[in-house]
Design a protein around this nucleic acid. Structure first.
Length: 109
DNA sequence: CTCTTGACTGAGG
DNA sequence: GCCTCAGCCAAGA
């Protein structure tokens, strides 16, 4: 489903939308899937419009499983609550059992 | 065209 | 294992 017609941002959105319920992934994983493993920052940068794109950005965290992007939500623990509502355990902005809930688009797709 | 910004990552101390 | 530094790349001013 690799459409070169899509922009980098839109590709990020597409992958993010494919994240299964109760799973999470990292910016680097998405970037790697897009063939831009060096552009992990762009993935997060693209998420600025994730809300408008209906993208589950709360399922996307950094490689440590840390909710680094929670600032970009309502500004509170909204991101954490969304993840917890999906069955993901979070403690101190850090996903517990990260390697268990981790979803790698390269391997899964 | 140049400079700045950033929801990142890997390597080194 | 934690902290710091540097590299990387795209978009906006």
């Amino acid at each position: 489903m690799q459409q070169e017609t899509l922009n980098f941002f839109e590709k990020v959105y597409q992958v993010a939308l494919l994240i299964p319920y109760g799973r999470v992934t990292s910016y680097g994983a998405i970037a790697n899937y897009l063939g831009a493993s060096r552009s992990a920052r762009m993935v997060g940068y693209a998420m600025n419009g994730s809300v408008e794109k209906n993208v589950p950005a709360h399922r996307v965290v950094n490689r440590k499983g840390l909710l680094t992007g929670k600032h970009h939500f309502d500004g509170t623990n909204l991101m954490q609550q969304l993840l917890e509502s999906e069955g993901i355990q979070i403690m101190d902005n850090q996903i517990q059992d990260f390697d268990k809930v981790f979803w790698d688009p390269v391997k899964e797709l």
